[in-house]
Amino acid sequence: MRFSVRLGSGTPAKVFRDCAVAAEELGFDQIWTGNDLLRRSGIVPVTVALAATSRIRVGSSVLNPVSLHPAEIAMIAAGLQDFSGGRYLLGLGAGSEVFLRWAGLQLAAPVRRTREGLRAVRTLLTGGVPDGWHERAALKDGPAPTPIYLGAMGPKMLALAGREADGVLALCLPPTQIDWFAARVGDTASKPDFDLACCLWVSIDDDRDAGRARLAAKIAAYSGSLAQDSLAAAGFDLERFKHVQSLVTAGDLDAATAAVDDDMLRLGIAGDVHDVIDRCLELKASGVRHLSFGQPLGGSLVEAVALLGRHVLPHL
């Protein structure tokens, strides 16, 4: 099995570095951080973490080919591969429509722009010239082969990942839907190293109630932006999510968090060490081979990484 931890966009570089050092010591295979537009750059913490570690692979999840040109993405990846001895992982995605439009950027359809960006970056990193570019538009310092993961939730993006990427960061909400995600990625038998990361919302704490409350707050905050069809397919009561969102809209975040019930908490994994172990063992038994632990994680990110590494990973 593979294990990774994901920290959100805007995570301070020093915090990400400390989490990377802890994750490496405790047996994690990968650590990722985001790069949402208008937050702190995700490239800086990735670089700092690579400098502070020697084994763990460090990834950007995810860069988009709109605000960053594919040539720039390939240049960044090549530089980080050279610096790290090949430990950098490149995450690509469509980027947030909202944030990109705030910046006045013109957008092609999400799958189209991601596919075109992926192909251009891949071609550059393997020493070629992308279709339609000038014949001299190749990386001047030589190829830098890099694993490319797509960040995906929807069927079309998942299928694109299965066809053309080396892995997928699949945000599984709820985790029990992993078979749905795997089916849409499709048959990757011809790519035995393809990495389907089951990305989870996880909140772990010595205090079980504190862990559950932290996940409830995250679910409340995102209650209005989750895909309704996906929630319905997983057997959730859509009216509950609408009620929580109405409280968020009214500005009563405490009431919204309190309104997240036990069934809604199925969207992620929350509680103490034993709760997290039990849920993760169920996922392993169902065939999951890469568990990726994402925020909220814990009140202290470093302490949450330590709890996962010391107490959860040994059971898996």
Rank of each mutant, 00 (worst) to 15 (best):
D193W: 01
I178W: 13
L215E: 02
E135C: 05
G167Q: 02
Q177F: 06
P174C: 08
G167K: 00
L118C: 13
L215D: 01
A221S: 15
A159C: 08
L150F: 03
W102E: 12
W102N: 12
C199I: 02
S96L: 10
V185R: 00
T114I: 04
A220H: 01
P192L: 13
A103H: 13
D193E: 15
A165Q: 07
L171S: 08
F181T: 00
L118Y: 01
L125K: 07
P175E: 09
L107M: 08
I148G: 00
T126M: 12
R163S: 13
K191P: 03
A210T: 10
A216Q: 04
V121I: 10
F194Q: 11
G95H: 02
T188A: 06
A221Q: 13
G132C: 13
E116P: 01
T126I: 08
P174A: 10
V185D: 00
I178T: 13
C172A: 15
P143V: 06
G211L: 03
S190C: 11
A183W: 06
V121H: 04
F194A: 07
L171T: 06
D131G: 10
T123V: 09
W133G: 08
L150P: 01
A138L: 10
P130N: 11
T126S: 12
A165E: 07
A189I: 07
L215K: 01
G128D: 12
Y149E: 07
A170S: 15
Q106W: 05
G162K: 00
A170H: 05
D209V: 10
A144I: 04
A108R: 02
H134G: 12
G142F: 07
A159R: 15
K156E: 14
A144N: 03
R112F: 03
G104N: 12
G186C: 12
V168S: 12
T123Y: 03
D207M: 10
R214K: 11
V202A: 08
A210I: 06
P174W: 03
V98L: 13
L171R: 02
L107I: 07
R101Y: 06
S203W: 03
L158K: 03
L158R: 03
E116F: 02
A216H: 00
A138M: 09
L100C: 06
Q106H: 13
D205G: 09
Y149R: 05
G142W: 08
R112N: 04
L118M: 08
P145R: 03
T114V: 05
K218T: 14
V98P: 00
V111Q: 01
R115I: 01
W180R: 09
R136K: 11
V111I: 10
G104H: 11
A213H: 06
W102S: 07
A197F: 00
R115V: 02
P110N: 05
H134R: 14
D193M: 05
A103T: 06
L196R: 12
A138D: 03
G162L: 02
D205Y: 06
F99P: 02
R122Y: 07
W102T: 09
A197V: 05
A197N: 04
P175C: 10
G211V: 02
L160K: 04
Q106L: 11
G162T: 03
T123E: 14
S190E: 14
L169P: 03
L105R: 11
T176N: 10
E97P: 00
L139S: 11
P175S: 09
D195I: 08
L169Q: 01
Q106M: 08
T114P: 01
E135M: 08
W180M: 07
L215Y: 00
L196Q: 12
R122S: 09
T146C: 15
P192K: 12
Q177K: 07
